[in-house]
Design a protein around this nucleic acid. Structure first.
Length: 211
DNA sequence: CGACTTTGACCCGCGC
DNA sequence: GCGCGGGTCAAAGTCG
């Protein structure tokens, strides 16, 4: 797309994933420590109640290497509501969100459309960060189901994932930089309504639940 | 057989 | 208003 469609306030980070030790497993990582690292490094921990990179928070990385790296290509995600509409977003997400759409497809009735429009504008809070990894899908403790992939500009093949947990509408988008295939940009949208343990039985993931 | 992935089509928002 | 491009749907295919 030409113009930045409202380059959003999506937060972005760059994390370097150690090449070995399957970067995606949340192994023995000290999440608390990780968080400190993040903050110490200037990572922004949202203070307004949105889910910190839902599960991204404690990402499985020991050593985040860079900070606040803007996404290379402008991403169209206007994230204005990040700081303002969390509660609404949460409600929307839980009550009418896409699930509404699940039962009554949003492309059907015209009356629905108006709702949808509103909903569409009310984007979920988003977090994006970059990682250097050979694998696309980070094991953040949640279970994801791919629901789409598309070739877009400035990105090879962004994949779209949705949390498989019922009533959880969290989505994430995974894309690789065209310039550096090892760079993976993961964007989380929404907030988990359950703990990672519901999906993956790992005590480490309990940490995420605090967000 | 159920869960998941792939993929083409569709819809909508935004810039011009 | 039009066209482009991103995001999502859903049928079909694949896998365990």
């Amino acid at each position: 797309m030409e113009g930045n469609r409202g380059v959003g306030a999506s937060r972005s980070y760059v994390l370097e994933v150690p090449p070995l030790s399957s970067p995606l497993t949340m192994h023995q990582m000290e999440f608390g420590q990780a968080e400190e690292n993040l903050q110490g490094l200037g990572f922004m921990v949202p203070s307004h109640g949105i889910s910190f990179p839902p599960s991204t928070a404690g990402l499985p990385f020991d050593n985040p290497t860079a900070v606040n790296s803007e996404k290379p290509a402008s991403k169209p995600w206007s994230n204005e509501e990040v700081g303002t509409s969390d509660p609404k977003v949460g409600n929307d997400q839980n009550s009418s969100g896409r699930d509404g759409a699940d039962s009554c497809r949003w492309k059907s009735a015209s009356s629905e459309k108006s709702k949808v429009k509103v909903r569409r504008k009310m984007r979920e809070p988003r977090f994006c960060f970059q990682t250097r990894s050979d694998v696309d899908v980070l094991d953040d403790g949640y279970k994801w189901r791919k629901y789409g992939q598309k070739v877009v500009k400035n990105s090879l093949h962004p994949s779209y994932y949705r949390c498989t947990h019922s009533n959880c509408r969290v989505k994430k988008r995974v894309e690789r930089l065209s310039e550096d295939c090892r760079m993976v940009i993961t964007t989380y949208e929404g907030r988990h309504t359950h703990s990672p343990c519901d999906d993956a039985n790992s005590s480490e993931h309990e940490y995420f639940n605090s967000f």
